[in-house]
Design a protein around this nucleic acid. Sequence first.
DNA 1: TGCTATTTATAAATTAAATATAAACAATTA
DNA 2: TAATTGTTTATATTTAATTTATAAATAGCA
Lengths: 229, 229
Amino acid sequence: MSKILIIEDEESIAELERDYLEISSYEVTICNDGEKGLKEALDNEYDLYILDLMLPGVDGFEICKAIRNKKNTPIIMVSAKKDDIDKIRGLGLGADDYMTKPFSPSELVARVKAHLARYERLVGSAGFENEMIEIRGLKIDKTARRVYVNGEERTFTTKEFDLLTFLAQNPNRVFSKEELFNKIWDMESIGDIATVTVHIKKIREKIEYDTSNPQYIETIWGVGYRFRA
Amino acid sequence: MSKILIIEDEESIAELERDYLEISSYEVTICNDGEKGLKEALDNEYDLYILDLMLPGVDGFEICKAIRNKKNTPIIMVSAKKDDIDKIRGLGLGADDYMTKPFSPSELVARVKAHLARYERLVGSAGFENEMIEIRGLKIDKTARRVYVNGEERTFTTKEFDLLTFLAQNPNRVFSKEELFNKIWDMESIGDIATVTVHIKKIREKIEYDTSNPQYIETIWGVGYRFRA
DNA sequence: TGCTATTTATAAATTAAATATAAACAATTA
DNA sequence: TAATTGTTTATATTTAATTTATAAATAGCA
């Protein structure tokens, strides 16, 4: 889920934008004030900025330059005046896109989506960061599909890995064997849920110090299993 | 000096674009034919592509997708119809910008400049692609397309080399056979992914000391292959 | 507490699936 | 056309998933 910061003094517009973006399941923060917005932008991690050019107090140009000076994050600039857009485009202050008010919220969403995708494509691939889950001594590398227990690698089969990862991703929640079977196994696979039990056992053998007293995957008698976070 | 490829069937337009771009000291190549354009785009190194959507023969959509499948280079799509622009934006086929004809050449130049600057900002610094990959005893010279195992050269065919290089460039990541096929083979090639297996085997024969216990390309049973860094 | 029904753990055997391999075939290139 | 490269096919091998049988643990209840 991507985080977006809107710096915009007109509350009604900011809220409209937020509503549309939230429907597309983005996490949105609003700053109605330029100075605070700049501070918020620099102090926290966002995936994209939507910045109004006409702000009381600080100049939108300056905010854009200041953000770009520190970060490569996409910036979409918004202005009521078409002329301004042409002007700033020429200035080359590092904004990624420019929109003239009024615009349709769905177009904003489309552009946000496109910019996030490109950024991910260009930076995400270069900065080869593997997705990791780490809980106490257990480390799961999702991209490499490797599991480490206290730094030591343990080999996992496909189903074992998928099952462990699912549980570790949803800790402190009890899942029945049926639920786990439906989640990890294919729709069609009409199978005995006993296979879940067997897989849990095999996972425990690989990650638990004492299988009869499991620290990670707990048995909830008569209900199912729970991953302890 | 950046190299730009224009794929555009209307010669007069292409030449106008070229003239303006050359004034801004870009190096411009023109292809008046879609199919040749795609081949040129994939076979050579360009810094930006300007692609007309309406081309006789090959579909502009397909060219865009095919380029994006292989490269992260900026693509500016051009179309005479405003409707098309809206349509492709929604498709998300990876173009970076969309312009409706007619447009002022200076605007084109401005956009080209902006895209090149962004690309440089995002990729130029961080994702510096090395021409030489060296991992343990394995050395891959990408420009010369030579592979050495413990200093000794091994000859590789085109597909073998491409596949090995791709995996070595993305180590510690599991790729399914489908993914590998899509990355290394051309768009059109509707083939059996079994050919991936065979190629992996052939690569292993050339780089592995013991093929049944591979040190470089590991088999992730039921998922795919992973290059161990 | 002790008995029993139920649920889970374990181990081993069976079945199923995916990959490795080799070789034939097809396509491309020189 | 010969030589090389790439693809398909058939078979062997390897690995993983599932089932089955039995043991152990748990909870309810007399």
